[in-house]
Design a binder for these strands. Structure first.
Length: 897
RNA sequence: GGGCAGUUAGCUCAGCGGUAGAGCAUUCGCCUUACACGCGAAGGGUCACAGGUUCGAAUCCUGUACUGCCCACCA
C-alpha cells in the first residue's frame, strides 16, 4: 500500500529526468501542425531564480503544455540573458570579497572570469527551470544565450542596419550617469523616489550692486557650475534686471541673468540657477541662450573645475561645505524642509547624476510609430487589455535611447577607429587603453563586427574598437527572432516567427516588450508576437515588494523542496487573478499542497479496487443518477476550463478543475461509489471513475505536471487506450451532456444536507444510524427520492428512510424542510423544544421575508410590464415555493405547542 | 501635474444587470476501512461614500474619499 501522504520529491526528480532524457519538449518545424511558440524571457545570469521567475515560467509552461495537448506544435524556446550591468555588478561584488577590482584583472581577464561564471550560473538557472517542471528542452543545442555567436551576429547586423539608415548616432547629450556603476543609463533605467531634503535659498548679488536675486535650489553644490540665472520673461519682479550680470558666490565668476520661458514664475522665488552640465532643464536653457556647459561633477562623482577648496570632494561633502560657506558669507537667505523626487540607478539604487556626455543613441521616433500602430490596431494584443493605453502612450513620448554603457560585460560596440585618422578624437587611460571616444574631436568610425584588416582610408593597421558595450536590452530586443538564427534565413525562423504569445511581468513592458515590438517590425517587417500576457509582481502577504534587505523574500526552491513543485505552481496560479500584483506567503502554498494530496489519495482509492494486473476497463453509458450527474459536472468543468484558457484566464481554468475534482468528484461521487464498488456494479463504476479521473488529470496536467503524470502512469494500464506521457496525450474530449441529472442531484443533495444539519445540531453521534421520514405531496419528487433513497441512507447515515405522501410526524422528532419534502428525524430521547422552535422560527422568518419580497415585485405593475417574462415566471415560482414553505413551517410550529 | 487600477466576510480575492461566493482563519462535532494535507456542520458582509440610469444595481454612468502603481524637466 502506498503511503497516506504524497511525497513529491522522488516523483518530481524521476519525471524531470525522464522528460529531458526522452527529449519530450523538443520541437521541429512540421508542415502538418500549427506552431504555438513562446520565447522565454531569458533570466539574467545573476544568481538563482526568484519567486517572480517561478510565476512567469509557470504561466508559460501551462500555455505550452496546454497547446501541445491540443495538438499544436508547441515550442518554448529556452535561454538566458547576459544581463549587462546587473551581471557585472555581481562579478564585482565577488571580486570585492577577494579584495580585488575588475581593473586588477584587466578587461580580458575580467571577461574570461565572467564567461566562466556564465557557464556555472547559466547551468544552475536552467536546472532550476527544469525543477519547476518547465517543458523546455535543455539540450545544449537548444539553449540560447544573448551573447553567444548567433546572437552576436544578430546584434551586429542590427547595429549595422540602423547605422546605415542613420538611426544610430553618436552625440553629446544630457544622460543619466551612475557613478557607482560607472556608466551611462537610458532614461527608463532610472527610478524616482521621494526623499526628504531641503530647499536652499541663495543670494546672488548684482554686479553693479543695485540689488540681488535669490534663487531656490535642492542642489547647492552645483552652483559652482552655474553659468546663468534664469527668470520668466513676463516676471515683473525681474524685468528691470534681465541682462545684467550677477556675482556667483564662492567664486569670482560673473554670470548673466537671462529670461526663459521654461522657468515657472510661481515656484520658489521665480529665479533658477542654471547649471547646463548637470540638469536636463538647465541644459535646454543653456542651449537656448548659448551658455557655457561647465562640468563640475566628474564621472567618478567628484567635484572638478571649481575652486581648489572643493576640488575632489564628493557631491555630498561638497553640498555640506558649500552650504556652510554660504551661511558664513551671509548669502544663505533661507533653508526650508522640502520633499522631492530624486533619481536612482535601477541596478544599484545609487543617486543618478545627470550630466552631459558623448554617447551612442538610437533614434526612436521612426521606430516607435509602427509599433504604436501595431498596438492600436491590436496586431499586438494585451491581456489584460488595460495595458494597451499606457503602452501606446509611452511610445508616443519616446526619447532617443542611450545605448552605450561604460562597462565591460556585454556586446562591444561594433565600431573601430584608426589611430592615425582619428587624431584627438581618441582618449587613452593611464595604461594606454582606449578610454573615451569623441566624434566632435575627430574620431572616425568604421562599423565592423571583427577587427578590419586595415583602415579603409589610410590603410593603417593600428585599429582600436570603441571601448563601450551596448545596453543589455539592445540584444534582448532582438530575442524573438535572434533565437531562430536571424539574420540567417533559417527554416526555424520561417516556421516559428512571429511567435504566439509573450508572457511577462509589467515591470519590463517598456524596457523590453516595447523594444521587441519595434525591432520586430523594423528588422522582420512583422510584430514579434500577436499577444502579450501581462502578469503582476509577486509581493509579500502585506503587498510589500519582496527584497533581500527587507528579509521578506520567498525562495521558490525552498518551497518546492518543502511542499512540492506542483503545490507551488498551483498556489501561484490560483492567486494571479486579473494581472495584478500577487500577495504571496508560505501559508498560501499549503492549499496547493493539500490539493495535490487530494488527487493522490483519490488515485490511491481507485487503486484499492483495481486488479493487480492492469487490464482495460471500458466505461459504459452511464445509467445511474450519480453516474449521469458526475459526467454532466465533468463536462461542465472542462467546458469552463477550456473557455477560460482561450481568454488567458488561467486561474479560472485551473479553479474549474479544482472544484470539480474536490467538491464533486471526491466529496460526492466517490462517496456514493463506495458501496457500489463492493457489489456487482463494481466494474462499471470503476471504469467511469477512471475515465473521468484520468480525464481530469489530463486537463490538470499543464498546471501540475508532476503529480498528474505520476498518477496517470499508475492508472493508464486500466484504460481502453492507455497512451504515453501526458504531454503527448490529447486534452480530454468534452462529453455531450445536459443538465437533467444535475437538477435531480441537487434536490437529493439538499435532502442529505438537511438531515446532516439536523444530526449536527442535535448532536447525534456521527457514526449512529438513524431513522428518517420524508413526506411530500409532490408525487414526482417522491418517486425520485425513492429511486435514490440509497444515496440518502449512505451519506446521511439513515438506516430506515420512510418516504410517502401521508406519513405523519412521529412524536419526539426533529423537523426540517428540503424542497418539496418535510423531513422528520425521530429522536431517542426528548427533543430540546426551545432549540427546535428557535431554528424553525428562523427558517420561517427567512421564508417570509423572501415571500414578501416576491409578493412586492409581483404587485409592482412596472415590474410585471417591463421585466422579461422568464424573470416574472421565476419570481412566481419562487413566491409559490415560499408560500409552501411558510405553510408547512407554520404547521410544524403549531404542532410543537 | 497627468494617466491607470483597486475599494465585496477577520485576511486574500472571485462575481460585473435579476435571491451575496471561494480559499484561508474562527466555532462545533468526528482518527467514518482514499486522504486529519481529511470529513460533516456553523457563524460572519447596509458589496468605500453620494447622486443618477433601470421594473430591478455589488454589477452600468457621474462625482467624492482613500489606497496602490505608472508617467512627467517644476529648480
Amino acid at each position: 500500500m502506498l503511503s497516506k501522504a504524497y511525497d513529491p520529491k522522488p516523483v518530481e526528480a524521476k519525471w524531470a529526468e525522464t522528460w529531458q532524457k526522452e527529449r519530450l519538449f523538443i520541437s521541429k518545424p512540421s508542415a502538418e501542425k500549427k506552431p504555438f511558440v513562446v520565447v522565454i524571457p531569458p533570466p539574467n545570469i545573476t544568481g538563482a531564480l526568484h519567486i517572480g521567475h517561478a510565476l512567469n515560467n509557470t504561466l508559460q509552461d501551462v500555455l505550452i503544455r496546454y497547446q501541445r495537448m491540443l495538438g499544436h506544435e508547441a515550442y518554448w524556446v529556452p535561454g538566458t540573458d547576459h544581463g549587462g550591468i546587473a551581471t557585472q555588478n555581481v562579478m564585482e561584488k565577488q571580486l570585492k570579497a577577494e579584495g580585488k577590482t575588475r581593473h586588477d584583472l584587466g578587461r580580458e581577464g575580467f571577461l574570461a572570469r565572467t564567461w566562466a561564471w556564465y557557464e556555472e550560473c547559466g547551468g544552475t538557472i536552467l536546472s532550476q527551470l527544469r525543477k519547476l517542471g518547465c517543458a523546455l528542452d535543455l539540450g545544449k543545442d537548444n539553449v540560447r544565450f544573448t551573447m553567444d555567436k548567433p546572437r552576436a551576429k544578430a546584434v551586429f547586423e542590427t547595429f549595422r542596419s540602423l547605422w546605415e539608415k542613420g538611426l544610430v548616432y553618436r552625440g553629446e547629450r544630457m544622460i543619466n550617469w551612475c557613478a557607482r556603476c560607472g556608466t551611462a543609463l537610458s532614461d527608463i533605467e532610472v527610478e524616482y523616489e521621494d526623499e526628504k531634503s531641503k530647499l536652499w535659498h541663495i543670494n546672488y548679488a548684482l554686479e553693479d550692486g543695485s540689488g540681488e536675486v535669490i534663487v531656490a535650489t535642492t542642489r547647492p553644490e552645483t552652483m559652482l557650475g552655474d553659468t546663468a540665472v534664469a527668470v520668466h520673461p513676463e516676471d515683473e519682479r525681474y524685468k528691470e534686471m534681465t541682462g545684467k550680470k550677477l556675482k556667483l558666490p564662492l567664486t569670482d565668476r560673473l554670470i548673466p541673468l537671462v529670461a526663459d520661458e521654461g522657468v515657472e514664475k510661481d515656484f520658489g522665488t521665480g529665479a533658477v540657477k542654471v547649471t547646463p552640465a548637470h540638469d536636463p532643464l538647465d541644459f535646454e536653457i543653456g542651449q537656448r541662450h548659448n551658455l557655457e556647459v561647465l562640468r563640475v561633477v566628474s564621472y567618478e562623482g567628484r567635484m572638478v573645475n571649481c575652486p581648489a577648496k572643493y576640488e575632489g570632494l564628493s557631491v555630498q561633502q561638497a553640498r555640506k561645505e558649500v552650504v556652510q560657506d554660504l551661511t558664513e558669507a551671509g548669502l544663505l537667505a533661507k533653508e526650508e524642509h522640502y520633499k522631492h523626487s530624486v533619481s536612482k540607478c535601477y541596478r544599484c539604487t545609487s543617486h543618478i547624476e545627470p550630466l552631459v556626455s558623448e554617447q551612442w543613441f538610437v533614434k526612436m521616433k521612426d521606430l516607435a510609430a509602427p509599433a504604436m500602430e501595431a498596438a492600436e490596431k491590436e496586431k499586438v494584443k494585451f491581456y489584460p487589455s488595460s495595458w494597451k493605453k499606457p503602452f501606446v502612450q509611452w511610445l508616443s513620448n519616446i526619447q532617443d535611447w542611450c545605448v552605450s554603457r561604460q562597462i565591460w560585460w556585454g556586446h562591444r560596440i561594433p565600431v573601430w577607429y584608426c589611430r592615425s585618422c582619428s587624431g584627438d578624437g581618441l582618449k587613452f587611460d593611464e595604461k594606454g587603453g582606449l578610454s573615451r571616444v569623441s566624434f566632435s574631436d575627430g574620431a572616425l568610425p568604421i562599423v565592423s563586427q571583427d577587427k578590419p584588416a586595415a583602415c579603409p582610408k589610410c590603410g593603417g593597421h593600428d585599429l582600436l574598437q570603441d571601448p563601450d558595450v551596448l545596453d543589455t536590452w539592445f540584444s534582448s530586443a532582438l530575442w524573438p527572432f535572434s533565437v531562430f538564427g536571424w539574420p540567417e534565413r533559417t527554416k526555424e525562423l520561417d516556421y516559428y516567427y512571429p511567435t504566439s504569445v509573450l508572457v511577462t511581468g509589467y515591470e519590463i513592458l517598456y524596457l523590453w516588450v516595447a523594444r521587441m515590438v519595434m525591432s520586430g517590425l523594423e528588422h522582420m517587417g512583422r510584430v514579434p508576437f500577436g499577444q502579450v500576457y501581462v502578469h503582476g509582481i509577486v509581493r509579500d502577504k502585506h503587498g510589500k515588494k519582496m527584497s533581500k534587505s527587507l528579509g521578506n523574500t520567498i525562495d521558490p526552491l525552498v518551497m518546492m523542496e518543502k511542499y512540492g513543485t506542483d503545490a507551488l505552481r498551483f498556489s501561484l496560479m490560483a492567486q494571479t487573478m486579473g494581472g495584478r500584483d500577487i500577495p504571496f506567503s508560505e501559508e498560501s502554498i499549503v492549499g496547493g499542497r493539500n490539493f495535490v494530496n487530494k488527487l493522490y489519495n483519490a488515485a490511491r482509492f481507485l487503486q484499492m479496487y483495481l486488479p493487480e494486473t492492469p487490464a482495460p476497463l471500458k466505461a459504459e453509458k452511464p445509467a445511474e443518477l450519480a453516474d449521469r450527474w458526475i459526467k454532466e459536472r465533468y463536462s461542465a468543468a472542462l467546458k469552463t476550463s477550456k473557455a477560460a484558457m482561450a481568454e488567458y484566464d488561467l486561474p479560472k481554468a485551473q479553479d474549474a478543475l479544482y472544484t470539480f475534482a474536490w467538491d464533486e468528484f471526491c466529496d460526492w461521487y466517490l462517496e456514493l461509489a463506495k458501496p457500489r464498488l463492493q457489489g456487482s456494479g463494481k466494474d462499471g463504476v470503476l471504469a467511469l471513475a477512471l475515465e473521468l479521473f484520468t480525464g481530469t488529470l489530463k486537463a490538470l496536467h499543464p498546471f501540475m505536471p508532476y503529480v498528474t503524470e505520476e498518477l496517470y502512469a499508475s492508472l493508464k494500464g486500466y484504460l481502453p487506450e492507455p497512451g504515453g506521457y501526458l504531454l503527448n496525450e490529447r486534452w480530454p474530449e468534452i462529453p455531450e451532456a445536459g443538465e437533467g441529472a444535475t437538477a435531480a442531484m441537487r434536490e437529493l443533495m439538499d435532502v442529505i444536507t438537511q438531515i446532516r444539519v439536523v444530526r449536527s445540531q442535535f448532536e447525534i453521534p456521527p457514526g449512529k444510524l438513524i431513522k428518517a421520514l420524508a413526506v411530500s405531496s409532490d408525487d414526482g419528487a417522491l418517486a425520485r427520492l425513492k429511486d435514490a433513497s440509497g444515496y440518502v441512507s449512505l451519506l446521511a447515515k439513515v438506516e430506515e428512510l420512510a418516504i410517502g405522501r401521508d406519513l405523519s410526524k412521529p412524536a419526539r422528532a426533529v423537523s426540517a424542510i428540503s424542497g418539496a419534502f418535510n423531513i422528520y428525524v425521530p429522536m431517542d430521547g426528548t427533543v430540546d423544544l426551545e432549540k427546535e422552535k428557535g431554528r424553525l422560527a428562523k427558517e420561517l422568518e427567512k421564508a417570509r421575508a423572501d415571500g414578501e419580497q416576491c409578493a412586492r415585485r409581483l404587485e409592482d405593475r412596472t415590474f410585471m410590464e417591463r421585466a422579461p417574462k422568464a424573470e416574472v415566471e421565476k419570481i412566481k415560482a419562487r413566491s409559490e415555493d415560499c408560500g409552501g414553505r411558510i405553510d408547512r413551517l407554520t404547521k410544524i410550529l403549531e404542532e410543537l405547542r
